[in-house]
Design a protein around this nucleic acid. Structure first.
Lengths: 109, 109
DNA sequence: GTGTCGTAGTATGTCTGACGTAGTAAATAT
DNA sequence: ATATTTACTACGTCAGACATACTACGACAC
């Protein structure tokens, strides 16, 4: 039986970011907007949290970065998810299911 | 609109402990066993995590402690939930609902 | 009579993710 | 001209989780 770590949503920023990279590469500002929109404004990721997540995930091999000049002439750092990143994302989804089940037992509705 | 903090399950140990104190006072070893049992062994709280949660929550006014000699002659530190603790617990339950809704948007099943 | 297991903790220190604060710089809106 | 939006980087702090280690008592086996 898998034991879930107690350090849970704390690490779910990474999962949210990876989800948004599944379809195509993206960059900080865009990811930030998408998280805000997808969550209906309920969750707004802090810039420092976001960019440090990029750094951490690149170090862990879950994403790779490349620099590119956008239509508007600004240079952006884009991030692309790797196979290891996809794997990590799916593992986190499984962990989330387990976590939900556990936490639910201690919640009163 | 309430914004959820990104520091989430990380703080849910407190919620689980408080849940187990709702009915009657209890102590570390017992709480630990109950968490393991209620979660079907999926979550086993670490001793240090548990006892530091007690210290923190007492400081925050969510629980109070008293020492008592048990049937077996051993001295135990019992903890009792306070009104502020009950309030905190319910707030956490609400937060959990919100968090679930948000995270779900980024999870693939 | 000794060793191990279960009970019931305490002490100390480290690590990590989140985030506060601040600053840079170019493009766009007013 | 100025403010706002876009798109970051740098630096430092904090809290919760947890690793490691230690104490102490009772029961029970061998």
């Amino acid at each position: 039986m898998t034991e879930i770590s107690s350090d849970v949503i704390r690490g779910y920023n990474d999962t949210m970011i990876l989800y948004l990279l599944l379809d195509q590469p993206s960059y900080g500002y865009e990811i930030s907007k998408q998280i805000r929109e997808l969550s209906d404004g309920k969750y707004v990721i802090k810039e420092t949290t976001l960019y440090s997540a990029f750094t951490r995930m690149e170090k862990n091999g879950y994403i790779t970065s490349f620099s590119q000049v956008a239509e508007n002439g600004k240079r952006r750092t884009y991030y692309r998810i790797t196979d290891a990143g996809i794997q990590f994302y799916h593992d986190k989804c499984d962990e989330w299911q387990l976590t939900q089940e556990v936490v639910e037992k201690f919640i009163t509705h």
